[in-house]
Amino acid sequence: MNQHHGMTLIVKNTTRLVSGFIAVFGVYVALTGHLSPGGGFAGGVILASAGILVVLAFGREFSQRLVTETQYHLYDSSAMAAMIILALLGYLAGGFFVNFMNATSPQSVGESVGRLNSGGTIPLFNLAILVKVAGGLAGVFLALAAFRAGGRSQGADAPSVALPGGAGEKED
């Protein structure tokens, strides 16, 4: 078993089973944020924790083959842009950040309270915040893991500690 690339087989198999469900739960919490407790911020952190679990269990190289830090940062930035575009679309109903699809505006989708597509732009903002928070936190965690592996191998003046090589992945 290769200790340098992630944790033991048990952890890896459990991660294979669980991480997808965690990601789906994060999206669910964000999508139903306007109906029940939750919302984009909580959902984003849950989605990011699915990515963090993959980094912890399989190691940095494996998860960088799936999504790199640059791609995570791209998600982060484009979600921020989506938020601002949604806010600008409020000018359809008269102003910045005006909820242009809700019950009282002319573009109303006409759904009653308690349905998934009620609330106008609130679910859309929740989705944007979900992608933004998840991309930002997962990317930062990946960058932290990469920094540890890189900072150890180079830098002659850093005190060399007797940890197995590629120590970035060991967690005990």
């Binding site: 911020f41 930062v140 920094f147 830098g155």
Partner: peptide, 27 residues
């Protein structure tokens, strides 16, 4: 508060990054 909780997490990540840089430079 809802937004401030997540901001605290982002700031913690920033402080952790700074601490790791300090540790790399000074040990």
């Amino acid at each position: 508060i809802l937004t401030s909780i997540v901001i605290a997490l982002g700031v913690t990540a920033l402080m952790v990054a700074l601490a790791l840089r300090l540790h790399e430079k000074y040990g």
